[in-house]
Amino acid sequence: MKNHTPTGEPEDFTTSEGLRALLHRLHETGPHAWEHDPIAREVMAYAADKYAALARKHGLDPWEAASAAFDVMRARATRTADDPWGVVTHAVRITCIAEERGQGLLCSTHQARRPHVSAFHDPERLSDRENPLPDYHPAFHYTDADPTEDASLGGSEEACTSAGSAMEDAIALFTLLGWPPHIARAGVEHVCQALALIGNRRSAYETLRRDKHSRALLDISADAWTALLKALLGHPHPSYAATIAGRGVLLRLLIGEPLRVLLRDDDLVLMIALAAPSDGSRS
Rank of each mutant, 00 (worst) to 15 (best):
G155M: 12
G102N: 04
E17P: 03
R247M: 14
L106M: 07
G234H: 06
D146N: 08
N3E: 14
R282A: 06
P134F: 10
H213L: 14
L177C: 06
V191W: 05
A216C: 08
W63V: 11
C160N: 07
A145C: 07
A227Q: 03
F174R: 02
P62I: 12
F174T: 01
R20F: 10
T78I: 11
L270K: 12
L176G: 10
I220A: 02
L60M: 15
L22C: 08
V191D: 03
L60N: 12
P62T: 12
T175E: 08
G187T: 01
P180F: 12
C192I: 07
N131S: 12
E189M: 09
P236T: 03
R260A: 13
A184T: 00
A276Y: 04
A119L: 13
Q193T: 07
G246R: 05
I171R: 00
G8Q: 14
R201Q: 01
A21C: 08
V117K: 02
D144E: 10
D82E: 15
D169T: 05
L228G: 01
V261Y: 14
P62D: 11
K212P: 00
A47T: 00
E206L: 14
S203E: 15
L153K: 13
P181S: 14
P180N: 09
P238W: 08
H32V: 05
A276D: 03
A166F: 05
E206S: 12
R41K: 09
T226R: 01
S239M: 10
D146Q: 01
L218K: 02
W34C: 06
H58F: 15
E100H: 15
L22Q: 08
I97D: 11
E158L: 14
K2P: 03
H190M: 08
E157P: 01
M73Q: 07
S108V: 03
A65R: 03
D49Q: 14
A172N: 04
A216H: 14
R185L: 06
H182I: 03
R125P: 04
P31E: 11
G187F: 06
L54A: 12
G178I: 01
S281C: 05
D267M: 08
R101T: 13
A91S: 15
E157A: 14
G154R: 01
P132M: 07
M44V: 06
H141Q: 13
R41Q: 10
T243S: 15
G256K: 03
E149K: 00
H4L: 15
D219K: 07
A69Q: 02
A33K: 08
D265C: 07
Y205Q: 01
E189Y: 05
D169V: 00
A53W: 06
I244T: 15
A47W: 02
R74S: 13
M167N: 04
S16Y: 10
L133S: 05
A98V: 01
R25P: 06
T89P: 02
G187Y: 04
A139F: 15
S152T: 07
L173K: 03
G30R: 01
S221R: 01
P31M: 05
A77H: 09
I183T: 15
Q193I: 04
F13G: 04
